[in-house]
Design a protein around this nucleic acid. Structure first.
Length: 287
DNA sequence: AGGGGGACCTGTGCGC
DNA sequence: TGCGCACAGGTCCCCC
């Protein structure tokens, strides 16, 4: 999926065409993606105003005037495309085969005529994404999330405390959304490289200092990626189709066989499997 | 109870 | 060119 920086980039792209607008029409092209859509999904959305679009970890969180909250998760290959007019889009800019949800938002009367209302199209070839509608106070699938990495609730001491009782490799622990919420495979690899920590290290062996470095590196890696507009991967594009460019800055992710970016190191980036997923690292400078 | 592996899907890129 | 396999950003569920 889109990891935290990509979801934040999507949020920033969607906010101007969704916040303060009413769901005039909701179209579902199938009954389920990863999970079935909520009961009466269309009826509960149509007519409601999307008051605020925020983000928690990798979830998009839309607060509605009805009092309910729409959660949207992009899974591995979900993306949003903004169009105007009617579905299917006639622009030919994308294949509508995997368009699963189409939101037609109310127009801004000052600048848009009726037929120019924004269409927000959810496209997801692998269908690992999902949407939930929550009543007030219900956190749904966000219930177990750990601290938001860019907030003050996440720090070296907080990380150290969370890792203390964990025996799993640090790579697995950082992917565990209960430890810290929003990291995925790419940014875990990148942050561990920055902190000079091997993905193979067992979580409970990290010192307080190492946790301080690691938490700082997680924050800086994510902040830099958000600033760059999210990474561009095969299945990800910013909602307006603009390409991000953080991919050109990956130091280790998908860099197997390349020289360690640290000129003084002289190591080579390896790829190993951990819990069925690829880890990229330099065994010369990550210990 | 924590942790590892498989499942859920489609698409792409590679080697033969 | 075509086929088959490996692999892909995430999460959930089952089993040890």
């Amino acid at each position: 999926m889109p990891e935290l920086p990509e979801v934040e980039t999507v949020r920033r792209g969607l906010a101007p065409v969704m916040e303060g607008r009413r769901f005039e029409h909701v179209q579902l092209n199938r009954a389920d993606i990863r999970f079935p859509f909520p009961d009466d999904f269309i009826g509960r959305l149509q007519g409601a105003v999307l008051e605020r679009l925020s983000r928690r970890a990798k979830f998009l969180v839309a607060e509605l005037s009805s009092g309910e909250t729409l959660l949207m998760h992009l899974g591995m290959s979900g993306r949003f495309v903004i169009e105007t007019g009617s579905w299917p889009p006639d622009s030919g800019t994308h294949n509508p085969k995997h368009d699963h949800v189409v939101f037609t938002m109310s127009g801004d009367d000052k600048t848009m005529s009726g037929k120019d209302r924004p269409l927000i199209i959810y496209n997801d070839p692998r269908r690992f994404g999902f949407m939930e509608l929550l009543k007030a106070g219900d956190k749904g699938r966000m219930a177990e999330l750990g601290p938001e990495p860019l907030s003050n609730s996440f720090s070296g001491p907080v990380l150290h405390a969370a890792l203390r009782a964990k025996k799993a490799p640090i790579k697995s622990a950082l992917l565990d959304q209960r430890i810290v919420a929003g990291l995925g495979n790419i940014y875990v690899c990148e942050a561990l490289y920055g902190a000079h920590i091997s993905p193979l290290r067992l979580s409970n062996t990290l010192s307080e200092d190492e946790c301080e470095f690691l938490s700082a590196d997680i924050k800086s890696t994510l902040a830099l990626a958000i600033e760059a507009g999210g990474s561009t991967l095969k299945d990800f594009a910013a909602v307006d189709g603009a390409l991000g460019y953080f991919q050109h800055r990956f130091k280790v992710y998908d860099q197997k066989g390349k020289a360690c970016p640290d000129k003084h190191c002289g190591g080579t980036i390896s790829r190993i499997k951990q819990s069925g997923r690829s880890s990229f690292y330099c065994d010369m400078c990550q210990k």
